[in-house]
Amino acid sequence: MTDPLRGQPVALVRGVGDVGSAIAWTLFQAGYVVIAHETRQPRTIRRKMAFCDALWTGEALLEEVSAVRIDRLEEVRRRATDDRVIALYTGSFDALVEAVRPDVIVDGRIQKFSTIQPLKERASVTIGVGPSFVAGEDVDAVIESCWGDELGRVILDGQAIEPVPVPPRLNGVGWERFVRSDRAGRFESDLSIGAYVEKGDQIGRLDDHPVCAAISGYVRGLLYPGLSVLKGEKLCEIDPRENEAHFVGLAERPKGIAQGVLNALDGFLSNDALQKDVKVLKDQDDHVILTNIVKIS
């Protein structure tokens, strides 16, 4: 159902980590009315690459697009439409779906180890990111989330591949750039994302125990202060690149996944699921990268 006030399709995106945020940002730029859903304490550390801080501060800005936390369910759709923001809701997901009746639902949380909630037939088009979903059963399409040549691939039958066991290296540094909790506790930090730290510097505290940097570099990710964590959770990420450190704005992998979501929607436009009345936008290399749907059946 398109929004009656603006003739725009409504997209509901689950998750405001860096991947879910990139999807929401991209759909917003494509002209969708975008509504995001998240729990109250996501373990996102790349917070300047995401909308997650809106959960605590009420609003977050990502590359000139605002996400605003809306606490009243009856206000979500109106605020997303009238205020031209991404409306972030933290209440019941099922109640949100019933209230806003989205045209598109995208689950961008990449649930590697959690039980997923099937979405198929809860909207005209449903899309899941990562290996937990089965295309054709849980959702209409799955988007490949694993680094490599297949990143962003649209899968209409089956699953995405399992994630690689190690992250891509930055200046030759892999897992060492992540600081994990060595015990359960409450995390606190006075640092800001983008700060430079030397190896061994204290970056925060886990209860009364210091948490120190394992390498030198710029703080790329930092868990929101005040959250309680379990042993082994990510607390911080340090970017070791002196001149090319990236800690603000959309990251490469989330952008690739968001591109895949748009490619999936473009594919559905050629089928009966969506009626085709679109504006095609192009990237700097003149490749078609998205379609702005203005009518959905």
Rank of each mutant, 00 (worst) to 15 (best):
M1L: 10
T2S: 09
G15M: 05
G15W: 11
G17S: 13
A22K: 04
I23E: 02
I23M: 03
T26S: 14
F28Q: 11
A30T: 13
V34E: 02
V34A: 05
E38Q: 12
R43M: 14
K48H: 13
A54D: 01
A54L: 01
W56R: 10
G58E: 05
A60D: 03
L61Y: 01
V65R: 08
S66P: 00
V68C: 03
R69D: 00
I70S: 06
D71A: 06
E74L: 01
D82M: 07
D82T: 10
V100C: 13
D103G: 14
D103R: 07
V104K: 02
I105N: 04
I105R: 06
R109E: 09
K120N: 00
S124F: 03
G128L: 02
G130H: 11
F133A: 05
V134M: 02
G136R: 07
G136W: 06
V139E: 05
V139K: 03
D140P: 09
D140T: 12
I143G: 08
C146V: 14
E150S: 13
G152N: 09
R153P: 00
P163D: 06
P163H: 05
V164Y: 01
P167N: 05
G172E: 02
W175G: 01
R180N: 05
D182K: 07
A184C: 04
G185N: 13
G185K: 08
E188I: 00
S189E: 07
V197Y: 12
V197W: 11
V197T: 07
K199G: 05
G200K: 10
Q202Y: 00
I203W: 09
I203Q: 08
G204F: 10
H209I: 06
P210G: 09
A214N: 11
G217C: 06
Y218R: 15
L222Q: 01
Y224I: 01
G226H: 09
G226Y: 10
E233H: 13
P240V: 09
A245S: 13
A245R: 06
H246E: 02
G249W: 11
R253P: 01
I257A: 02
V261T: 04
V261A: 04
L265H: 07
D272F: 14
L274W: 12
D285I: 09
H287N: 14
V288E: 12
L290C: 13
T291K: 15
T291G: 12
